[in-house]
Design a protein around this nucleic acid. Structure first.
Lengths: 201, 201
DNA sequence: AATAATACTATACAGATGTACGGTATGTCA
DNA sequence: TGACATACCGTACATCTGTATAGTATTATT
């Protein structure tokens, strides 16, 4: 597996610059633009670095096309997830990787998606804490059992959608709060796809 | 606002092609690549269409830069995080975006980071549920209060690190379980940076 | 009927760009 | 020591690319 740590400091800087250019201006840089950014007097320097990045499996370059630097996402935008922990840590065994977290899918997704910062503790027993970030897919219909984002006036709440005797309820995951019948003053604006919580550092 | 309906059939085709190229290959097409795709024998045709698209406000072109076609619209490369929800949804107001979800800081950092699938419910009151994915920074030391990943044999557990009377404990966030003194049979392999839970879809 | 916008072809050119080759210097590793 | 990777400079060149200009034909618009 290609690890970012196999790159030199300089190579990582170049890769980061390319990534940022693509992300910010949606346009990969030309060789001379890279040279200019790093103060190189020669394009040959850039050629060397790109050659190394290609060889180490982090980028792909189409021949005879300008700016055709493609970042190989699988090698960069993923974090190895280990299924069983071995005693051999901190040397991560490649064989233990059983899936990859691809954050890029989320970022580059074409779904109508937005993030919402959670207020309050009404979903605490579902593992959704105050200040958590929930990624929401915009949709006006939902099924019972799903965690939905409902709008009442300008107030957005995250709740379970529940159905009892044909009646829909917004149900909190906290005994402190009560279920609320889903009346016309509410509108469902999406369902929760992902919960993200950033801790230390 | 600029409506897509002000475009002609052909102009809409061109715009869609440009959009798809950027989205799929992360590389805007050159004029001749556009011409080739539509079977134009001349670049002048493309020039005309791009000129119209610029004039109607759908794209922006940087002069003297190859492939520098930028689509003016929502930024497809990031997820807007809305602080307060307006009644106007599902049309996301740009003014409400107060921050962007940025996961690449984590990825591009020099830290040695891996993911771990959580087993068991011992941290359920800290909002860490079974099958959650925790992103862990590898390090052998931690401070009291941090959520750590400890290794006992080949078993990895996620717990709070607590200090009482100079003695360290691994403390679960679930009254069902007890605190465990941090003895030599345990080794701390990292601290939890992020908690991620994928739900629906 | 006149004008403008649309939709193309054709050609020319400066400069932007990728590519190739060679060179220097430094540090790393066996 | 020698081989090798890294990290730069310098130069040359074919071609890719944007830009400009000119022309033809069709369709809308006034």
């Amino acid at each position: 597996m290609n690890k970012l740590s196999t790159l030199t400091e300089r190579q990582r800087e170049i890769l980061r610059f390319i990534y940022n250019e693509i992300k910010n201006s949606q346009l990969p840089p030309s060789l001379r633009e890279i040279a200019s950014h790093f103060g190189f007097a020669s394009v040959g320097s850039v050629q060397d670095h790109l050659k190394a990045l290609v060889q180490k499996g982090f980028i792909k370059i189409s021949e005879k096309k300008s700016r055709a630097i493609e970042i190989i996402k699988e090698n960069i935008f993923s974090i190895p997830i280990i299924g069983t922990v071995q005693a051999g840590l901190p040397t991560l065994a490649v064989e233990n990787i059983d899936e990859y977290l691809n954050l890029d899918d989320l970022i580059f997704s074409n779904m109508d998606v937005f993030g919402l910062r959670v207020k309050g503790d009404s979903m605490i027993n579902a593992g959704i804490m105050p200040l958590d970030l929930v990624i929401v897919r915009q949709q006006s219909v939902a099924e019972a059992g799903e965690i939905v984002v409902a709008l009442q006036g300008e107030e957005a709440t995250v709740k379970y959608l529940k159905k009892t005797n044909g009646q829909y309820f917004l149900e909190p995951a906290n005994p402190k709060y009560h279920s609320i019948p889903l009346t016309s003053e509410f509108s469902i604006i999406g369902i929760v796809l992902t919960v993200i919580r950033k801790l230390g550092k």
